[in-house]
Amino acid sequence: MSQTFSKKDVADHATEEKGMYLIIDNNVYTVSKFKDEHPGGAKILKRMGGKDASKQFWKYHNESVLKKYGPKLLVGTVKEDAKL
């Protein structure tokens, strides 16, 4: 079952020790265990840990990559910030 995260929750998961999460199109993915398998290397995943990586992801990947790896890495979604 997936969870709902705030952007702050995701930001709190920016290191390997806390479990690295990324946001891609409002979905939250864990990349802690995937970082060593990432063809582009672990460095970029470490740099983007805890952040919205949508722009960078789509710059270098197509939809087939997300279809292949997304289901295994998906942990939840980002909830909308309250509008005041």
Rank of each mutant, 00 (worst) to 15 (best):
K59V: 03
I23V: 12
G40E: 09
V31C: 02
P39V: 00
L22P: 02
D9P: 00
A11F: 05
K72Y: 12
P39M: 00
K55T: 05
W58H: 02
G49H: 10
S2F: 14
Y60R: 10
K8H: 14
A11C: 04
G41A: 11
T30Q: 01
K55V: 01
H13M: 08
A53D: 15
I23N: 06
D36R: 07
A14E: 07
K83V: 12
N62Q: 05
I24G: 03
D12H: 14
T4Q: 08
K43P: 00
Q56D: 14
G49K: 13
P39Y: 01
S2T: 15
K79T: 11
K7I: 12
A53I: 13
E16P: 03
K72G: 15
G49R: 13
K33R: 04
V28A: 02
D25F: 00
A42T: 06
P39D: 01
G76S: 13
D9T: 05
S32E: 08
Y69H: 15
K43V: 07
M20E: 08
H13P: 08
Q56L: 14
Y69S: 14
E37P: 01
K67M: 05
G49D: 10
D81Y: 00
E16K: 09
N62G: 07
E16V: 05
R47E: 13
V31P: 04
I23S: 05
M20G: 05
K72R: 15
Y60N: 08
V75K: 14
A42I: 01
M1S: 11
F34K: 06
L66A: 09
P39R: 04
N62I: 05
V75M: 08
L73A: 14
K67A: 11
Y69F: 14
V10L: 07
G40L: 10
Q56H: 12
Y60D: 06
S54V: 01
E16C: 05
Q56I: 09
E16H: 06
S2C: 13
T30C: 01
T77K: 13
M20S: 08
K68L: 11
G76F: 07
A11P: 06
G76N: 13
V10W: 09
D36P: 04
N62F: 04
V28C: 02
M1A: 13
V28R: 01
G76P: 07
D52A: 03
S54P: 00
D25W: 00
E80K: 07
L84A: 08
V78W: 00
L45K: 02
K35S: 06
N27G: 12
N27L: 10
A53G: 14
L45W: 04
F34I: 09
M1D: 09
H38Y: 02
S64L: 04
G76V: 10
V78T: 08
H61I: 03
G19C: 02
K68F: 11
F34S: 07
P71Q: 12
F34G: 10
K46Q: 15
G40F: 06
A11V: 06
T15I: 03
K8M: 13
A14M: 04
D52V: 06
I44Y: 03
K8A: 15
G50C: 01
M48Q: 15
G76T: 10
Y60A: 07
K18M: 06
S64Q: 12
K59G: 00
D52C: 03
F34A: 09
H61F: 08
Y29G: 05
R47F: 10
R47K: 14
Q56T: 07
G40R: 11
Q3I: 06
L66D: 09
